[in-house]
Design a protein around this nucleic acid. Structure first.
Lengths: 342, 342
DNA sequence: ATGAAAGCGCTAACAC
DNA sequence: GTGTTAGCGCTTTCAT
């Protein structure tokens, strides 16, 4: 009994052809469903031979020759952030319906990790790639001239040559801040903020927040712009800082639901009344937020629309090729008010 | 400006060789780090040519010829369950340290999806596969005689030919139930229970629970064995049923943290005192549970140990081949008591 | 230390 | 409707 590793070498198309008494090309035609090119009787014989031998096509060989793979990839910064898991699950279903298999890749949220996914030789393994940008920017990716369809996800549109599903970062942050202001909040802490630096998810959301403050004539308090990451721990840490600072803000906008939940935990432990004393708004519209206690108010990016757009743009590009006009889609974010706001 | 699709065809090893004035084979040796076979000056020239041309190896071609890929896959039932995201993140880091890239595949929690991942032609794309079993069983997978290293994750060991990282399903459930009993709980509802049927995650955990009841001389109340899935919504639904049933249990054991969190939300909304009136225990040791309010008590499978074991077994098998003796590892689960138990 | 030849398994292009 | 030929880009093997 063997435990993995090469067996008495796998049957090839040639083996099937010999067994069925046809040419290899006919087997290829059967396997690839080119029914017009094969007679019904021949087809049946080939199928029988395939069954008997337990034959499966060698994807690497097929890919090398034809360039097609039947597989698309989604590259995300972090497998463990709830948002990406939910996005991936939505995409898996939709791509399957389009006859494509989805695999997930990992960029580690680093610029080089993101650029590596569009390198020739890496990208060649897929019919297309949806790339969630967290660290680098779309322009830089476009400059690599990916030789397969790539759809950029996230960020704001900057001039680039690639199809793009844009997250409504500025608009979502503006809406959240406007709402908090309207409830009487005056000191709004922002968790994950990045006031300067290159265009990125955090900087765009920070900009939306600042714009809303400016529009309302409210001052920006730099002490309330708290940096840090997007995970549970980051949120918890930030809440700890706020608590230690003495003068609590009256609202908190976190750039992910995970971070908001981390903050919520620390606030609850400290006995802070949410939303009475302090309101909290997350971002992502994850299920984890919906089922939190109290249920987390959140900036909902409209994830179904985002998933639909990713699939549509990528399939369109795979089928239509490079001459198709470039397309940019931005589903508007909407504020989902639940239990952590007034 | 193009927007994806083939460009003026990518440079090949032959192009690099011509440019550097060496043979293709020398380029291959440089690219694959066979330094002993290439002189330093030649190496430098080749590297320069690669840089100038922007050359990248074609993974499909390399794979076709050599069989190696440098990539391993983790196949999970559901991208969006927190547990799998966290496991994937742990594995990505560890495999990277071992010089392997990790990609995620999706089985949709279906038997055929699981079996499809070990088909020749699918599996051939990877150096190895870690397969999380939810629907099918390991025996059935082994019968397909996967021709690459496969490590089964989950379930209990049944006789099989494959390396196996076993989750401590029976032991974890027994420990949780014993503890709840020790706090005075008499009516323990089990969420996700599956009292009969083939060996599977739910049936094994149910068995552990029933064993603990039996050992304590406590009766099994079939009404408290609530079926259903593992996601937030499933937990919420089950809690709703419990609430509607009138006579509340005094404890609840859910087979995932996500489901426990869903239940917790419904209970909190209904004003049920947790853990005063009803204790809740989840399963998975996810960060989402740790940061819930109150923090979720959980059966912690020891995820670092599980990730270590998966990587160790897979790398060992990839390097050692089929003749290596088969190995089975089961890190013991431990009860992590937090705020939802007394 | 470097190169030449062969061929991995498949499909595009064309012939019949 | 079916077969023949050629070759995708790489690595193996063997020669020098």
């Amino acid at each position: 009994m063997t435990t993995g590793g090469k067996q008495a070498s796998a049957p090839t198309m040639g083996d099937v052809a010999r067994r069925a008494g046809v040419s290899q090309m006919t087997v290829s035609n059967v396997v690839n469903g080119r029914t017009a090119r094969v007679g019904a009787a021949t087809r049946a014989r080939v199928l029988a031979a395939i069954e008997e031998l337990g034959y499966r096509v060698n994807v690497s060989a097929s890919r090398l020759r034809s360039g097609r793979t039947g597989v698309v990839a989604l590259a995300v910064p972090d497998f463990s952030l709830a948002y990406y898991g939910e996005l991936a699950e939505r995409l898996a279903t939709r791509f399957e319906a389009a006859g494509l298999r989805l695999v997930l890749e990992h960029t580690a949220g680093r610029r080089d990790g993101e650029l590596a996914t569009v390198e020739r030789g890496h990208l060649d393994q897929y019919d297309g790639l949806a790339l969630v940008l967290a660290a680098g920017d779309a322009e830089e990716v476009a400059r690599r001239h990916p030789d397969r369809p790539v759809v950029i996800v996230g960020e704001r549109e900057v001039s680039t040559a690639l199809d793009h599903v844009v997250m409504d970062n500025v608009g979502g942050a503006r809406a959240a801040t406007e709402y908090l202001l309207s409830t009487g909040a005056r000191r709004i802490a922002v968790l994950g903020a990045q006031p300067d630096g290159p265009v990125s998810m955090p900087s765009l959301r920070t900009r939306g927040h600042v714009e809303a403050l400016a529009a309302a004539g409210a001052p920006v308090d730099a002490d309330l712009l708290i940096g840090g990451g997007v995970a549970f721990d980051d949120g918890a840490r930030a809440a700890g800082i706020l608590l230690a600072g003495g003068r609590l803000p009256d609202a908190l906008l976190a750039f992910t639901d995970d971070a908001a939940l981390g903050a919520l935990h620390v606030l609850a432990t400290a006995g802070v009344d949410v939303p009475g004393r302090l309101q909290v708004v997350g971002w992502d519209g994850t299920r984890a937020g919906r089922f939190a206690t109290p249920a987390l108010s959140t900036v909902d990016p409209d994830n179904d629309a985002i998933a639909d757009a990713i699939v549509r743009l990528l399939v369109r590009r795979i089928e239509g090729g490079p001459s198709l006009p470039r397309e940019v889609v931005m589903p508007p974010a909407r504020l989902e008010l639940r239990g952590t706001t007034r």
